[in-house]
């Protein structure tokens, strides 16, 4: 996609100069990720036991796991909402595991587009303003924000709902606005947490189709977190986790298939 916006130059404070070579090849480069809670107390609990996986640019990957498998914890780390206890995580070549809170904010703002199960649009704020939100925190001027937001509304086919408040929109419409919002700063990855979980199967289908469209037409890297195997089957690659470990990784099946066909 041709991005009309040149985001203002920003730095993440300390940029780690020693980027491992594989980190620059992949959008997500996670190595030996461990996450523990209640560290130093008798209740210390290790949720993730050292996960290693890489996601190349433009891949549509799903992370599947039952509840309690460590899925949410992994998502929080991928989404730069949290740091791993140990291990390294590079997002588009940026070291997330050592970033401070302010740097994490900037990473979330520029590199990650969140799509939540419960949409999480800001109440009493129009669809357009909701889409503008990440750009607002990204310091993009008002005029450019509006332009970009309208462009995104068009992509998600919601142009006629620009001025509507979230409570005037259906679930499917809300999720489309949320997806447009996730795309606002043209992030490295779109991180979707059960995006169809609160929708009926028909609108859920529409939302999935939209993800496929963004993946296909704009080459977006999408990480879909779900417990629904059917949805996962639609994606390029399925990473299955259980009890804090990766138990299977299909690799990019489409790519493999294509290579096999050749």
């Amino acid at each position: 996609m041709k991005n009309k916006i040149t985001p203002p130059s920003y730095s993440y404070g300390k940029v780690n100069n020693i980027v491992p070579p594989e980190a620059s090849k992949y959008v997500i480069c996670a190595k030996d990720i461990v996450k523990s809670f209640y560290i130093g107390t008798p209740n210390e609990l290790e949720i993730l036991h050292g996960m290693t996986f890489n996601v190349p640019k433009g891949e549509f990957v799903s992370i599947v796991g039952q509840s309690g498998s460590g899925k949410s914890t992994l998502m929080n780390i991928i989404g730069a909402l949290d740091r791993p206890t140990s291990g390294s995580y590079y997002l588009d070549g940026i070291d997330v595991s050592t970033a401070n809170d302010k740097e994490l904010s900037a990473i979330r703002n520029k590199q990650i587009g969140f799509v939540f199960q419960t949409f999480n649009l800001i109440a009493r704020t129009s669809a357009l303003k909701n889409i503008e939100l990440p750009m607002l925190y990204g310091g993009i001027p008002s005029k450019q924000r509006k332009e970009r937001a309208r462009e995104l509304l068009e992509i998600v086919e919601m142009s006629d709902r620009a001025g509507h408040m979230p409570n005037e929109l259906s679930g499917g419409q809300k999720q489309r606005i949320a997806i447009a919002r996730a795309m606002a700063n043209d992030p490295s990855i779109i991180l979707a947490d059960e995006p169809t979980g609160a929708l009926d199967s028909k609108t859920g289908r529409l939302v999935m189709d939209l993800f496929h469209k963004l993946h296909r037409e704009q080459g977006k890297t999408i990480v879909l977190i779900t417990h629904n195997n059917e949805l996962a089957e639609e994606t390029d690659r399925i990473i299955t986790i259980s009890d804090g470990n990766i138990i299977s990784d299909t690799g990019n099946r489409n790519k493999l298939r294509k290579e096999a066909e050749e």
Binding site: L81, S105, N185
Partner: peptide, 16 residues
């Protein structure tokens, strides 16, 4: 609280 969470997820720094 939830709105604050969403804003933070969208990249709002604490100062904002």
């Amino acid at each position: 609280t939830r709105e604050i969470g969403v804003r933070k997820a969208m990249g709002a720094p604490n100062s904002a």
